[in-house]
């Protein structure tokens, strides 16, 4: 799949933002006033900024309101509804914490649940795709949720929870890569099943429909980036999981905390790039590519 920068930025940043919303919603940290303002501002910037980045991906963003209508069937629509609901509930909750010095506990818990619901909906957009075997796994939402909670805990200064959740997310990341590398073969979709010509003999793509490229090849058959996949995986895992955990284990200071956040975000951006670049869509089989 084509790794669109807007989508990579959106899923990474909004995942972090909604993770931070979760911890703020359950009152960890339960600060009020100016300190709360800084926390909420970071969460809104990440979650809201991610949503705006995703709008750049649309051909007709001016019709975006229609995307709130099909929540019964579409995970993308559910994501839109949940994201806006989270921002609205957390906005109200933030007013209480920042300006009134009061914590509306039920509202916070509702916002926390909506925030993780949004991350789940984002993950399900990918996990539902039968056409991309690497994504179609229960591990995809598990990885997205653990990353959101772990990254959110990192931003919220919840060192113990961040340590636990980043280790869990790292383990899920390894499991996701392991199963993803086997998923295409396990899906049983091959050139033989795509063309129905398997019984006749060995199939080879002789000639593509046109000599030039097309939308399908640009969007769904991305073969360039995989050359360095192994090195990138090591970098993503080292920066996204290992280094933040090491930095959190040494006695806490704000400098180390900031370094852990920067390293984590850089690593997750690399992992998210691989999430798309390594994902093979079955339509590539019709072109003799994967």
């Amino acid at each position: 799949m084509h790794p669109a920068p807007s989508i990579i930025a959106f899923t990474t940043l909004s995942g972090l933002g909604f993770g931070l919303f979760f911890w703020l919603g359950i009152g960890m940290p339960g600060s009020t006033g100016m300190v709360a303002f800084v926390f909420f501002a970071i969460a809104f910037a990440l979650a809201g900024g991610g949503l705006i980045a995703s709008a750049f991906h649309l051909g007709h963003p001016e019709r975006g309101l229609l995307a709130f209508t099909q929540w019964r069937s579409s995970w993308l629509s559910r994501e839109a509804v949940l994201a806006v609901a989270t921002l609205a509930v957390m906005g109200l909750y933030a007013i209480g914490r920042i300006f009134l010095g009061t914590t509306w506990v039920p509202l916070g818990w509702l916002g926390a649940a909506l925030a993780q619901g949004t991350v789940l909906a984002t993950a399900m957009i990918y996990a539902q795709m039968k056409t991309v075997p690497r994504w179609r796994s229960i591990l995809t939402p598990a990885l997205f949720l653990s990353l959101s909670l772990g990254g959110g805990a990192l931003l919220a200064g919840q060192v113990t929870w961040a340590l636990i959740l980043l280790v869990v997310a790292g383990a899920l990341q390894l499991a996701w890569w392991w199963q993803g590398d086997r998923a295409f073969a396990a899906s049983c979709t091959t050139m033989a099943s795509a063309t129905g010509l398997g019984a006749a003999g060995q199939i080879r793509a002789f000639e593509p429909p046109h000599t030039g490229p097309n939308y399908l090849l640009r969007e769904m058959v991305h073969v360039i980036g995989r050359k360095h996949a192994r090195k990138l995986r090591i970098m993503a895992f080292g920066m996204g999981y290992v280094l933040p955990v090491v930095l959190l284990l040494i006695p806490f200071s704000h400098v180390m905390g900031a370094l852990a956040v920067i390293s984590h975000v850089a690593g997750i951006l690399a992992a998210r790039w691989l999430f798309f670049a390594e994902a093979e869509h079955v339509v590539g089989l019709y072109y003799g590519k994967r």
Binding site: L58, G59, R63, L66, A67, T131, T189, V283
Partner: peptide, 26 residues
């Protein structure tokens, strides 16, 4: 008239039957 050009339907199709028009963005 209701298509926002998100391209998700093209991802969901295993046959490559849907193509985004680069001029009309639908």
């Amino acid at each position: 008239d209701a298509c926002i050009g998100c391209g998700l339907c093209a991802w969901a199709c295993p046959y490559g039957a849907r193509e985004m028009d680069m001029a009309a963005k639908v």
